[in-house]
């Protein structure tokens, strides 16, 4: 099982590459119709399968790389939703920075990366019943039965980067500044926490 994971990862990456090549090959990506739906279902499937891999694979390094694959497919979904700036930030922040940080943490901490101890099977099945069945059914029932009042997507395309930038410096100026202070606090806090204790 573990030996085949590398090949599986390679296959998934190859398929992802093929999908990214679709606009190059001339298939209309964002037209209405079957192609858009197929791409959505493919991205959703890729996202869910790789997320399951993150949870369930034994080797945590494989989990880290599958996490990057999840982030990239979520970025694809953002592009389908017309959120190109958020998709670019997703790839930069998550697939770039967070994944590398996870791999660094694995390198600095784990003494047995090949396998880790698991909780008892009763515990895991109880968690699965409550989360995987209970919470999921509850959420899906509300999503599919709910009445969603949304405006039909208008034809005019909004310049997302311009709109987001203007909003940041007008409406959301205070949260923007607070976010910068939070990042500074996280930087200093991480350095203080991860620093070695002072030698006597």
């Amino acid at each position: 099982m573990i030996r085949n994971v590398d090949k599986l990862l390679l296959g998934i990456a190859f398929i992802a590459f093929l999908v990214l090549m679709i606009p190059v090959l001339g298939i209309p990506l964002f037209g209405t119709g079957v192609a858009t739906d197929m791409i959505f279902y493919f991205l959703a499937l890729l996202c869910i399968i790789s997320a399951m891999g993150v949870v369930s694979l034994k080797n945590i390094v494989h989990s880290a790389f599958l996490l990057a694959l999840t982030f990239v497919s979520i970025a694809g979904i953002f592009i389908m939703l017309g959120a190109d700036f958020v998709a670019a930030a997703q790839i930069l922040l998550y697939a770039g920075a967070v994944t590398i940080m996870m791999v660094f943490a694995v390198m600095l901490t784990s003494n047995e990366i090949k396998s880790e101890a698991k909780y008892s099977i009763v515990y895991r099945y109880t968690a699965f019943i409550f989360i995987g069945l209970g919470l999921l059914i509850l959420l899906l029932r509300n999503i599919w039965n709910g009445k969603w009042f949304f405006s039909p997507p208008s034809g005019n395309v909004v310049d997302t980067t311009l709109t987001i930038g203007k909003s940041f410096f007008n409406e959301y100026l205070l949260p923007f500044e607070v976010a910068s202070v939070i990042l500074l606090m996280a930087l200093i806090g991480a350095i203080v926490l991860a620093r070695k204790e002072k030698l006597q």
């Binding site: 940080m101 996870m102 660094f104 943490a105 600095l108 990042l183 606090m185 996280a186 991480a190 350095i191």
Partner: peptide, 12 residues
């Protein structure tokens, strides 16, 4: 991103 940084520092 801030949470991941501080969390990994705590783990280390």
């Amino acid at each position: 991103a801030a949470e991941a940084g501080v969390g990994l520092a705590i783990v280390i």
